[in-house]
């Protein structure tokens, strides 16, 4: 009888131990977690889903393509064209912040000194500021004049699609990002480029 009780205790002890460890695992982002800084430009393959390396690769390819495309080189050697960014259509199944991609692209293009951008999402905020400036509170000589904004010459827009295939433990994910630069006046696509990314993941037999 006594040995039976001991046997049960010994049997439940490892289960308790496992539960305690599992509890620790779920609090990995809590204050007790081992936090460290890492290189944001490093290759990240934590999961097969869209990640920082994909975003950086796409932005790098698009900007390099645009800055070296002969007609664009000729154009930007004469002036700094004004561009506005239209939405990138996310046709993948994942929730991807495509604005983060276009933000990185526009940052790089502005930093290149070859392009200027307008931000249509801030029109309301600009109007508010202009109204404030013309309210009489602001000294006239420092007031921003109305009707001086520059119209965008080009529109930057594109598509983001994916093909996903799974066979057994293997998952194949193919991304295609297409970016276009359209002349607003003529409707002509002056430049277009695409970046393909293929990722393959093999699920482990054991483990999470």
């Amino acid at each position: 009888m006594k040995s039976n009780i001991i046997y049960k205790k010994i049997f439940y002890l490892p289960i308790f131990f496992v539960l305690v460890l599992a509890g620790c695992a779920t609090t990995s982002t809590g204050p007790a977690a081992n936090v460290r800084y890492s290189d944001p430009t490093a290759v990240e393959t934590t999961t097969i889903d869209f990640g920082s390396t994909d975003l950086q690769q796409i932005a790098e390819t698009m900007v390099n393509g645009l800055l070296t495309f002969p007609p664009i080189v000729q154009l930007t050697s004469e002036r700094r064209p004004v561009v506005f960014v239209e939405m990138i259509k996310n046709k993948t199944r994942e929730h991807i912040d495509t604005e983060a991609i276009t933000d990185t692209i526009s940052t790089k293009l502005i930093q290149s000194g070859k392009f200027r951008f307008t931000d249509r999402t801030k029109v309301d905020a600009i109007l508010k500021e202009l109204q404030y400036q013309s309210s009489g509170l602001v000294e006239e000589s420092t007031m921003a004049q109305l009707g001086k904004q520059i119209g965008a010459e080009f529109m930057l827009y594109g598509n983001f699609s994916a093909i996903e295939k799974t066979a057994g433990r293997v998952k194949d994910l193919y991304y295609k990002f297409t970016l276009k630069l359209l002349n607003v006046e003529t409707g002509i696509i002056e430049w277009q480029d695409e970046k393909e990314i293929r990722k393959v993941a093999k699920r482990k037999m054991i483990g999470m």
């Binding site: 490892p14 496992v18 695992a25 990240e44 483990g207």
Partner: peptide, 28 residues
């Protein structure tokens, strides 16, 4: 049984707590 459960628990926690160690490339 104890040894087996311990082994599995160590395997599970090492993967769950530090998934980035194996995957993230070394720094510049």
């Amino acid at each position: 049984l104890c040894a087996c459960i311990l082994f599995i628990s160590v395997l599970l926690t090492s993967n769950a707590v530090y998934p980035q160690r194996k995957n993230i490339h070394k720094t510049e």
